[in-house]
Simulated assay, not measured.
Amino acid sequence: MNDEALLRYSRQIMLDAIDIEGQERLLESHALIVGAGGLGSPVALYLAAAGVGRLTLADADEVELSNLQRQIAHTQSDLGRNKAESAGEAAVALNPGCRVRTLTTHLEGERLDTVVAECDLVLDCTDRFSSRYAINRACQLAGKPLISGAAIRFSGQLAVFDPRDPNNPCYACLYPPGDAGANDDELRCAENGVVAPLVGLIGSFQALEAVKLLSGAGQVHRGLSTFDGLHGEWRHFRVRRDPACPVCSGR
């Protein structure tokens, strides 16, 4: 790191859990963010600001007026633009040293597998069960940690799935495919609403877990945490790996 980088990241380098070695690991890391909306906005901005060296942002949607209530990487002037490109531009404006690649088509199949295999970890910032299952499968196949977030109405969820740990469950262990409601793509902000700061809170926690994983700081989140925004309460649940899981049982 040069003097400018040392000054930029000085507040993190001061932390014993990160120090210079951890900051250098961040600068050498590559994170994939799938979804550049409510959750992906704070994730992209905070990871760029924290010094993650490479970000790949994937989103096929365009910025709409109703997005601006909560998707803070986009502004009024971005209406009609692709979300990945808009969020990528915002991340680079915050930290020009961050290398950002944008993918403006829906990731699926072999393309999803290839992109996941290229990164160090994945942050699922999507709002569809079908996308979450596909991302989980790709992460299990490539052996990449997955940081999953969800937010709707006043309720949020956070979970980290790391296939490098033989005892760690995957997303399909938590929400088995075929369970009631598990394939209901109508449980989305567009149909049910969401309070603006909630996505920022959950996205910020996703970014925090990514910084910890990439830098080697602290202990990674385990299990499932849910947040009740109306009452300001967190609850934590242990999630056991399902030996019959159709996705990770053969790991």
Score class of each variant (00 low, 15 high):
A159C: 07
V194A: 14
A151Y: 10
Y175C: 10
S204Y: 12
E108L: 00
A93V: 10
V92S: 05
N183D: 12
A151L: 06
L158A: 12
Q157D: 02
G109E: 06
L201N: 02
L123D: 03
A117F: 01
L174T: 00
C119Y: 04
D165R: 15
Y133H: 14
L123W: 01
L94H: 02
V194N: 13
G149I: 03
N192R: 12
N167A: 15
G203V: 11
G149W: 03
V116F: 01
S155E: 13
T114M: 06
S155Y: 13
E108K: 03
D179I: 10
T104L: 03
P96N: 03
Y175N: 06
P96K: 02
A93S: 12
C139I: 03
E186Y: 14
P197I: 15
H106R: 14
A180V: 08
T114N: 06
E108Y: 00
A159V: 02
G203Y: 06
C170Y: 04
N136C: 15
F129Q: 08
D124G: 06
T105V: 07
C98P: 07
A196V: 06
L201V: 12
R137D: 14
L107E: 10
C189E: 04
G143Y: 08
V195R: 08
D124L: 01
Y175W: 09
D120K: 10
A151H: 05
D127G: 09
N167M: 11
P197Y: 15
L187R: 08
L174V: 05
E118P: 09
P145Y: 11
A151F: 08
F161A: 11
R132W: 09
L123G: 00
G203N: 08
G203R: 02
P145I: 05
S204K: 07
C119Q: 11
P163V: 07
A196D: 13
R188F: 02
E191F: 15
L146N: 01
A180M: 08
T126Y: 09
L198A: 08
P166V: 11
G143C: 05
Q140F: 05
P166R: 10
V92D: 03
F161H: 06
F154W: 11
A182G: 05
V199R: 06
V92N: 05
V100Q: 02
G181I: 00
D124C: 08
